[in-house]
């Protein structure tokens, strides 16, 4: 697999704030790569650096295995934070400027405007667009000229539920054509539903990098509940095939060893005289994993 984007030991400070801290990761061809992190974790700064608008203090990055420059940027379609266009120009004129910069034909403009459902408003001034329309024009600009890599920074910002669903579908469809997508978001749900790979950022550091499915398919957690919670907890604590155990409200949450399952637990508890009134597998969501990673980082 060839790395489309490779970041090594990237750092950037704004005053006393270390926005990006020795960050390294790689994005491979065809990935839908999620850059996940809370507000202010350095997602936009990182993307700003690799897009050439922010200069890093230290560290390097490369696109397509070559040093960065304006030529490589022409192969990338991107929106960074809010879309930025000339307010006194119409949507289509704004896209023509982008097409001129990218040195591609205007033929593609109608196509991308239709994709984002903005075609019938294309001759209206950008300043008269609603927030959602501005965002959609930004996405249209990023899609222009069929880039090899698509970078979307919080793409569903300001969109209504229908718009959000449309964008997610669009991302998946574009990815099917082999386009590499980098998606920065603080919305776990968004990353979980669309991304194949994820890097979790906190305070500019890489907290976790890996396959989204791998996180989600780890041994599930099991919720157990009983009328006598203390007895249940003690009984489970003595069970040998258990990785971790903790209490959450009126439930005991346990993580089992790989070779054990919920049926074993039920049998074990019954034989120890504990009656269970609730037993269920809890599918781990990225959100729980995310919070867990953040909790670890704060220790």
């Amino acid at each position: 697999m060839s790395a489309i984007l490779s970041i090594k030991q990237l750092s950037k400070s704004f005053g006393f704030i270390r926005a990006v801290n020795e960050l390294s990761f790689e994005v491979n061809k065809g990935d839908i790569f999620g850059l996940l992190g809370p507000n202010g974790s350095g997602k936009t700064t990182t993307l700003g650096i690799v897009l050439g608008v922010i200069s890093p203090e230290s560290g390097t990055y490369s696109w397509f295995g070559t040093p960065p420059g304006s030529k490589t940027r022409k192969k990338i379609g991107a929106i960074l934070e809010t879309p930025q266009f000339y307010p006194y120009l119409s949507g289509v004129k704004n896209l023509k400027i982008l097409a001129d910069i990218k040195e591609c034909k205007y033929d593609d403009i109608d196509r991308v405007l239709k994709i984002v459902d903005l075609h019938d408003r294309k001759n209206h001034h950008y300043r008269n667009y609603s927030l959602g329309m501005k965002q959609r024009l930004g996405i249209a600009g990023a899609l222009l000229c069929e880039p090899e890599v698509l970078i979307l920074d919080e793409p569903t910002n300001g969109l209504d539920p229908q718009g959000i669903a449309d964008i997610r579908k669009l991302i998946l469809r574009i990815a099917e054509d082999g386009t590499t997508i980098i998606l920065a978001s603080h919305l776990l749900d968004e990353v979980q539903k669309t991304c194949s790979h994820v890097t979790i950022l906190d305070h500019g550091k890489n907290m976790y990098s890996g396959n989204v499915d791998a996180i989600l398919n780890e041994t599930p957690l099991i919720e157990v509940s009983s009328d006598d919670l203390e007895k249940l907890f003690n009984a489970l604590s003595n069970y040998t095939k258990i990785k971790s155990i903790y209490q959450e409200a009126d439930k005991v949450i346990i993580m089992l060893d790989e070779d054990s399952n919920s049926a074993d637990i039920n049998e074990y508890l019954f034989s120890n005289g504990v009656t269970v009134n609730h037993l269920c597998n809890r599918k781990k969501t990225l959100e729980k994993h995310f919070l867990q990673i953040l909790a670890q980082s704060n220790d």
Binding site: K74, I101, K102
Partner: peptide, 16 residues
């Protein structure tokens, strides 16, 4: 308008 940012992201060099 921060359009210089979008210009550069899209592929214009600073010298251009």
């Amino acid at each position: 308008y921060r359009t210089i940012r979008q210009n550069i992201i899209t592929g214009l060099s600073r010298t251009e």
